[in-house]
């Protein structure tokens, strides 16, 4: 690669490889969007057609006749509420983990990490029974709470990292000035930790928005989220491909926007800070 004669060829090779990577990543999205613009007749042509007259009928029908709009609304309510709650509960904990030494800190850390690993089905079984006993099935608050089990660890994780990066001198100076521990947290460290708060909020939102299993088990109609709705189109023989893909597109677009905004930190979030 360092030799002059080979470099042109290697550049072309690189170009081709990069284009293949791009095509591989993007093609399924292209297919999803184009299928969502096909009428049922066009969608069921065999072999599939690539050029056709686009229509927005699938979106209109899915959103207004089938109630996808309402489920999108539910998804937003659940994702936003659980994110806010995770940040409010998680930030102080992250601050403590970054700044103080206390007994059981290691165990606490271990417990938070285990939450990242636990299969949601392990929690779904007992949670379903408990929630059913309280008559809380099919309510937003139920999903908001259960989503905390994976959002809270993310917020704690990323923000602990962020707080650690703030020099301790600042705290010490403030202590000498007579500031209380809470004021140091709220007025000095918190503003500096805002990037971490933003990134972890985006993650929390994405994970909650994408979640399907808890939504399937814990909701029926009232609090049904958009992914659960998309799945319910899959019943019967004559699958409405166009409508399913229209709903999918509507679900995926907001996530992709957020993911692209946070793209630099995406890996850090998914590995829980192990890889920066």
């Amino acid at each position: 690669m360092s030799i002059a004669t080979g470099s042109k060829r290697s550049l072309t090779g690189q170009c081709i490889l990069l284009l293949i990577i791009l095509a591989f990543c993007v093609f399924p999205f292209y297919w999803m969007v184009t299928t969502s613009l096909k009428t049922q007749v066009v969608a069921l042509e065999s072999p599939p057609v690539w050029i056709f007259e686009a229509t927005l009928d699938n979106y209109r029908e899915a959103l207004f006749d089938d109630g996808v709009l309402r489920t999108l609304g539910n998804s937003i309510i659940v994702a936003v509420c659980t994110t806010v709650l995770a940040v409010v509960l998680g930030l102080p904990a992250a601050y403590a983990l970054a700044r103080f030494e206390f007994r059981g800190k290691k165990d606490l850390w271990f417990w938070f990490i285990t939450n990242r690993m636990v299969s949601p089905i392990v929690l779904a079984l007992p949670f379903f029974l408990i929630v059913r006993n309280f008559g809380m099935l099919d309510q937003h608050i139920t999903l908001i709470l259960i989503y905390l089990t994976f959002n809270l660890p993310i917020v704690i994780w990323i923000c602990t990292d962020q707080f650690r990066a703030i020099p301790k001198d600042l705290d010490e100076a403030a202590t000498l000035e007579g500031a209380s521990q809470f004021r140091i947290f709220a007025q000095i460290c918190l503003p500096l930790a805002m990037p971490g708060v933003a990134v972890s909020s985006i993650f929390s939102f994405i994970f909650s928005w994408n979640e399907l299993m808890f939504a399937l088990i814990l909701t029926r109609t009232n609090a049904k989220t958009a992914p659960a709705m998309a799945v319910s189109f899959m019943e019967g023989y004559n699958l409405p491909f166009g409508k399913i893909m229209a709903t999918s597109t509507l679900i995926v677009i907001p996530v992709l926007i957020f993911a692209l905004i946070a793209s630099k930190q995406l890996v850090r979030g998914l590995t829980m800070g192990a890889v920066k």
Binding site: C25, W209, S248, V252, F258
Partner: peptide, 8 residues
């Protein structure tokens, strides 16, 4: 791909 809703 990483961000795409798993169900989708």
């Amino acid at each position: 791909p990483m961000a795409t809703t798993y169900a989708v």
